[in-house]
Simulated assay, not measured.
Amino acid sequence: MPEALAPAYYTAVGRGWRRDVWALLHPPYTAWHLSYVVIGASLAPKLSTFRLGATLVAFFLAVGIAAHALDELNGRPLRTSIPSWVLKAAGAIGLAGAVAIGLAGLPLLGWSLLPFIALGVLFVYAYNLELLGGRMHGDFWFALSWGAFPLLTAYFAQTGSISLGAVAAAASAFALSFGQRALSTPARNLRRKTRSVSGVITLNDGSTARLEEATILKPLETALRAFSWGVVAIAIALLSSRLL
């Protein structure tokens, strides 16, 4: 496999602060998981755009900035040149900002919001830093913390309660996120950990095709692209139906 292969399909090979910041934000995946926030809020009987905006900012700070900064700090998977102290500061400030927004919501939602805040902090640290021996850095925990949790939190932020419909939608977000990781894990391994790929596929008619990294990566990353923007489109559709 060529050494110049980028560590992710949405970032470029090479260096530079613009490239590093773009890679660190993981735009398609961040948009994907923020869409669960929009979906959860849009399911509420009464939609508050103020609460939705606050929830989106909180999850962007926690997921888009803090979680991704800590993930890059843990082994440099994106090969950025961002100083470690900057990543640590981004992780701390991003998570502190998310927690502050959550605490500001206590007068509106009461103490029942605290478990959501605590779980959010736990998920960011335990998943991205692979604490507890990496036990929370797997498919199940990813789907729970990046899929079901944002949707349920957004619904709760609107209503102060959890409905059966919200739980069903969270199960859908869990399933989609579980599938996302099933696709992204082998794609990441190919881009970041594989030196070479070789082999031949022999079809029933006797024809053959060479097995190369592009052969394996293309269906994985085509699906990831489609699913990421598909979920964003669903979120936009639901929100538009509530506001327009």
Rank of each mutant, 00 (worst) to 15 (best):
A187L: 04
A54N: 11
A89T: 15
A8E: 07
L239T: 03
T159W: 07
Y36Q: 01
Y127F: 15
A23G: 13
F227W: 14
K193L: 03
P83L: 08
K88N: 08
S163W: 11
E3H: 15
L109N: 09
M1N: 11
V38C: 07
L108I: 02
L52A: 02
R15E: 15
L106Q: 04
G53C: 09
Q180W: 14
P27R: 06
K88C: 10
E212F: 00
S207V: 03
E213H: 14
L61H: 12
T49L: 15
L52E: 03
L56N: 07
A169G: 04
N128F: 08
P219R: 13
Y36P: 05
A98F: 01
A168P: 07
L106D: 00
R188A: 08
A89N: 07
L25H: 05
T55I: 04
V232E: 02
G133K: 01
W85P: 05
A90W: 06
T194W: 10
F123D: 03
T153E: 00
L217C: 01
P27K: 02
A168C: 11
I236L: 15
L203C: 08
D139N: 12
G120A: 00
R192V: 10
R76I: 11
L119T: 05
I82V: 11
L73A: 10
L203E: 12
R210G: 11
A12F: 15
Y10V: 01
L119S: 03
T49E: 14
K88A: 14
L114C: 09
T215F: 06
A69N: 02
A23P: 05
Y9E: 09
T222F: 12
S81G: 13
L238M: 10
A235P: 04
V124W: 01
P27W: 08
E213D: 14
F142A: 02
S198I: 02
V121K: 01
L243I: 14
W141Y: 13
S228V: 07
A8K: 00
N74C: 05
A92W: 12
F140Q: 05
A69D: 04
Y36M: 00
P186R: 14
S196P: 07
L217P: 03
P77K: 05
S145H: 09
S35N: 04
N128G: 01
G160C: 04
V38H: 11
D20I: 03
Q158H: 02
K218C: 00
S184Q: 07
A58D: 04
A214N: 15
L131S: 11
V232D: 00
W111P: 03
W111M: 09
L109T: 07
A44S: 13
A66S: 15
L56A: 06
L70T: 01
F142C: 13
F156S: 02
A96S: 10
S145G: 13
F116K: 06
I93L: 12
V63E: 01
A98D: 00
L144N: 00
V232Y: 11
Q180R: 12
T185E: 08
F116E: 02
Q180N: 14
F60V: 06
L52K: 01
Y125Q: 05
L113H: 08
I201K: 04
T215K: 11
V197F: 11
W141F: 15
A6P: 06
W111I: 12
K88E: 12
L56F: 14
V38N: 03
G199K: 13
F178Q: 04
G105R: 07
Y125F: 14
A175M: 14
V37P: 03
A148P: 06
